[in-house]
């Protein structure tokens, strides 16, 4: 083997090959192909990835990272949302004042609420971008048809998550936006009291699709509780299960799509 010139030390070398670093990390990380594979396959967080992948799949311009960032924003809402839950009581009596309390008295309360709100909006934007790029690269074509269907369900659930969360601050913005939204359910064919054939089937304002959603005839305290449970437990649970399915299918369908 020909003698290689000793090359200039890289930043990596300078940072890792000194007394202090070595005192903390006793042995180095040898950048061998075997170790590269193990870094992924032996790590609980990374093992969802394949250990090797097709070259174009790692380019920003192929995926825009939009799916991954949607997931990251989802995680942000979960973490900050759990913090908010420690202070929030879902009743008409307390909800508004609990949020005020979060905003003004709880240390870091305002920023937790802001992060929760803005990452939820970000998630809606990024899920659209993701769907847009998946369409543009034709990635829904065989064998990925079903994963697209799972994705559409995730899109619906994401919008429902945002919508149910919108009510929880229990301010004017919240109840009227939700009033507008749930009013449409009144007009559901067959199942709404103002929908085609609804009254004929015995639907009344107290007993129809909208009443099921709002737990009564108006958006009130019972609606708040209902939306709270949907927002904090029911929809996240289903969405998480579908995300697991989505990620698993990406692997089973042969990884990120690419030119054949």
């Amino acid at each position: 083997m020909p003698e290689t010139e000793p090359s200039k030390p890289s930043i990596f070398d300078i940072v890792t090959q000194n007394y202090v670093w070595r005192s903390i990390f006793r042995h180095g990380y040898a950048d061998t192909p075997r170790n590269r594979v193990l870094q992924v396959s032996a790590n609980v967080w990374l093992h969802l990835h394949p250990s090797k992948m097709r070259r174009h799949g790692i380019r920003y311009r192929h995926t825009w990272c939009a799916g991954g960032l949607t997931f990251l924003l989802y995680l942000c809402t979960v973490v900050t949302g759990v913090v908010l839950m420690f202070y929030y009581r879902p009743t008409g009596e307390y909800a508004y004042w609990d949020v005020k309390y979060l905003d003004f008295d709880v240390p870091f309360g305002m920023i937790m609420r802001n992060m929760h709100r803005w990452s939820a909006h970000g998630m809606v934007i990024f899920i659209w971008l993701h769907m847009f790029r998946v369409f543009m690269t034709g990635s829904y074509k065989p064998p990925r048809e079903f994963n697209w269907v799972v994705g559409v369900n995730l899109l619906t659930l994401t919008l429902l998550l945002s919508f149910t969360g919108y009510l929880l601050p229990w301010d004017q913005l919240a109840i009227w936006a939700v009033t507008v939204g749930t009013n449409m359910a009144r007009a559901t064919p067959l199942l709404g009291n103002e929908g085609p054939f609804g009254p004929q089937l015995g639907m009344t304002p107290r007993y129809d699709a909208r009443a099921l959603l709002t737990a009564g005839t108006v958006v009130g305290s019972p609606t708040l509780l209902r939306f709270y449970v949907l927002h904090c437990i029911f929809i996240p649970l289903i969405a998480s299960i579908l995300m697991i399915l989505h990620f698993w299918r990406i692997r089973k369908d042969g990884g990120i799509s690419g030119p054949l």
């Binding site: 590269r36 990835h49 394949p50 992948m53 070259r55 790692i58």
Partner: peptide, 9 residues
Amino acid sequence: KVHTWPYLV
């Protein structure tokens, strides 16, 4: 093919 670690990560 390229290695996921470090390129994708």
